[in-house]
């Protein structure tokens, strides 16, 4: 056996080298499992804690169809989840086209010089600006200077500003990851720059762009600080006007200028109440918010998986 695993010419014992390498693999793999277990069990413990404590509330269908109330166990999250969806809608509509266009421009159209370098560094830095600063910006600019008030539109805009760098960076990275052969194939056929972008580059970058956008949106969905800063209320006992229906042309933009609340604000409001029962309601809202975030991340993973398969 020993002669089999020892190189006859050099006399090196391959078996012992292989054994040593394997022991490193085992050490590294066990370390990785421990770290992974700590991370996942923390998240799981947090979620289970919220879910168990909030169980009397989130298992009750009325919780999703009631407005907040002074009585803890009658309070619901209707205005909060509707508000969250509306704000996310504004955020997505503003941030995704702007971010994709900016990323595409910076990656494909802009000349590479010191000016674009400065812009590039700034975009990366914007991703690290604390969200409360975005809130202050929105308070000063949208709410006070433009007098837009504490509305769905303002909340959507500030969250859009906040996730714009994420969308830009992920767009650039997914465009950069496209093999050079695809680009040269398109240009080589006589496509101009716009045709190359619209017909070949953007479709190839789409899974990456969508993933980046969803990751950005799932960060925005749980964001509290900028929304509090612009002055959102936690007690909203009405829904913003419906965007569809009513009179001709059956589409209304009134909802953009409506007051609102979102899930994290609603939860924050309940947590700061003295009554013990409000903690149950807050825990239930927290569990629902985590599920919403996980669902969005799950969607991103699914899109990436489908793109990889095809």
């Amino acid at each position: 056996m020993n002669t089999m695993s020892t190189n006859i010419q050099s006399g090196i014992d391959y078996a012992s080298i292989s054994r040593k390498n394997r022991s490193w693999d085992i050490i590294f793999a066990s370390l990785g499992i421990v770290v992974l277990f700590i991370a996942i069990s923390t998240l799981l413990a947090l979620f289970l804690d919220l879910a168990i404590r909030g169980a009397p509330q989130w298992t009750n269908p009325d919780f999703y169809t009631s407005f907040p109330s002074r009585k803890p166990l009658e309070a619901g999250i209707l205005s909060a989840w509707v508000g969250t969806i509306m704000v996310m809608l504004v955020t997505a509509i503003v941030a995704v086209p702007l971010g994709v266009a900016a990323g595409l421009y910076m990656e494909e159209y802009a000349d590479k010089n010191w000016f674009t370098d400065v812009i590039e560094i700034n975009v990366s830095n914007l991703a690290g600006v604390p969200s409360i600063v975005y809130g202050l910006l929105a308070l000063g600019l949208f709410v006070q200077t433009f007098g837009m008030g504490e509305t769905v539109l303002v909340a959507g805009l500030v969250l859009a500003l906040m996730i714009l760098p994420i969308v830009i960076v992920s767009t650039r990275e997914s465009i950069r990851a496209i093999p050079i052969e695809l680009r040269e194939a398109a240009y080589g056929l006589g496509a101009n720059q716009w045709q190359t972008m619209a017909m070949y580059m953007l479709p190839a970058a789409k899974p990456g762009i969508i993933t980046g956008a969803i990751v950005g949106l799932s960060r925005a969905i749980g964001e509290t600080a900028p929304i509090i800063t612009i002055g959102a209320l936690s007690y909203i006992a009405f829904l913003p006007p419906s965007p569809i229906g009513g009179d001709f042309p059956f589409i209304s933009f009134e909802w953009l200028n409506s007051g609102f609340t979102v899930m994290p604000i609603q939860m924050f409001g309940w947590v700061s109440r003295p009554q013990a029962d409000f903690q149950i309601t807050a825990a239930a809202a927290g569990a629902v918010l985590i599920v919403m975030t996980l669902a969005m991340n799950g969607l991103a993973i699914y899109i990436r998986y489908r793109a990889r398969k095809s």
Binding site: A185, A186, G188, L189
Partner: peptide, 25 residues
């Protein structure tokens, strides 16, 4: 490039159908 066609070292079809590839130009 509209007048002069090119075939590259590595086959580089577009990630589309065979038909779509031929009609791309």
């Amino acid at each position: 490039r509209m007048r002069v066609g090119m075939v590259f070292q590595k086959p580089n079809p577009f990630p589309k159908s065979i038909y779509e590839n031929v009609i791309a130009g």
